[in-house]
Amino acid sequence: MTATDATVHPYPGGDTSLSRFALEAASLGYDRLLSTAGPACRMGGVEITPAVIIREQTLKGATRIIRKACESEVRPVIMVNARDVAFNRAVLSFPGLDVLRHLHKSQKPSFDHVSARMASERGVAIDIDIRPLLVTSGHHRQKVLKTYRDILGLHRKYGFMLTVSSNAWSWLEMRSTPDMAVICSLFGMTREETAAALSSPERLLTHESPVRVIS
């Protein structure tokens, strides 16, 4: 089973070069990194896959960028930052989306059973970002933990894919694959679920979908 860190931000966004991220990722037990900068390549035994994060406020803007990214020569992994319920449902129904992330940033719970079913049917993964667990505290962290517990509950019921990302701007924010399982256990994710979530970007890239009964 492969392990992928679903978001890293190398230089110029962060303070660590892409090759250093790859070197550290290899020593931390990763096989692949989804990187917001740099080309698709293989460095030090780690596969680098470009990813694009869409931070648009409007659906129109987000869909325009998704369409543009889908048409590019090397198709990146397309991630969209979540907004309210209406935005999330609309963007989930749009073809080309791979990962919906930052659900903890919504003011109100924005991922319900309808969105969960849509994500499951369309093979869209929901991202678990561990960075807010490390850098926030108190009320903010409690809200993040609550959101992740809710997502986990829906994941167990509807079976959509999860990804786990360090969202690291520096290699100091990356954690090894066993350490990810320890951090994810803080909101009730089992070791097996974490391992499956770490390997799910591989399924996203090969566009494998779970077996479904159609008749």
Binding site: Y11, P12, G13, G14, D15, T16, S17, S19, R20, L23, W169, S170, W171, L172
Partner: peptide
């Protein structure tokens, strides 16, 4: 003196 957005961790490739 380097700020948070400066390159601080590299490899021999850079």
């Amino acid at each position: 003196d380097t700020g948070p957005k400066q390159l601080r961790f590299i490899t021999t490739q850079e």
